[in-house]
Amino acid sequence: MTLPPHAAFATASAVPSRAELRDHLVRTGIAGDIATTRENNLDHYRSLALRDPHYMFGLTFSEEWTYADVLELMAKKAGVIADPAHRQGQDTIDPERTIDAVEAMGDRVAEALRPGGTRVIVATGHPTGLLTIHLALARFLEARGATLLSPAEDWSYVSGGLGRRRKIRYLDDVAMLSDGGTLVHTHDPAPMRAMLAEERPDLVIADHGWAGAAGEAGIETVGFADSNDPALFAGEAEGKIAVTVPLDDNVLPRYYRPLTTYLIDRIAQAL
Rank of each mutant, 00 (worst) to 15 (best):
M195I: 05
T182G: 05
R266D: 08
A12M: 14
T221C: 07
P53S: 04
A10Y: 14
A175W: 02
L50N: 14
A234Q: 09
K76V: 09
E111L: 12
L130W: 13
G223R: 05
L130H: 12
F57I: 00
R97S: 09
L148E: 01
T37Q: 06
G145Q: 12
P84G: 04
R139W: 14
A75D: 13
G89H: 05
A152L: 08
G79K: 03
L177S: 08
P253A: 09
M176S: 02
A270C: 09
G129T: 07
L21C: 03
A14Q: 15
D52T: 06
H185T: 11
R119M: 15
K167D: 03
A68Q: 13
L113C: 00
T182H: 12
P4Y: 08
T186W: 00
I219E: 12
T128W: 13
N228S: 12
A211M: 08
L71N: 14
H134Q: 15
Y262C: 09
H44S: 13
V26E: 15
A104M: 06
G145C: 12
D154P: 03
R97L: 15
G181M: 05
A152E: 02
V243E: 01
G160Q: 05
L137T: 02
D83T: 06
S159N: 10
T36Q: 14
F140W: 11
E63V: 05
G161V: 07
G79H: 03
E236M: 15
R22T: 04
A194S: 04
G163E: 03
T260N: 06
A85Y: 12
T36M: 12
G89A: 07
R169L: 14
R51Q: 13
R38P: 00
P115W: 02
R46T: 10
R254K: 11
A35N: 08
A213P: 00
E199K: 14
E96P: 07
H6P: 05
P127T: 10
V80N: 10
T118K: 01
Y256E: 08
A138K: 00
E64H: 11
S178V: 09
L25S: 04
V243L: 08
E142L: 13
A104Q: 13
A214N: 03
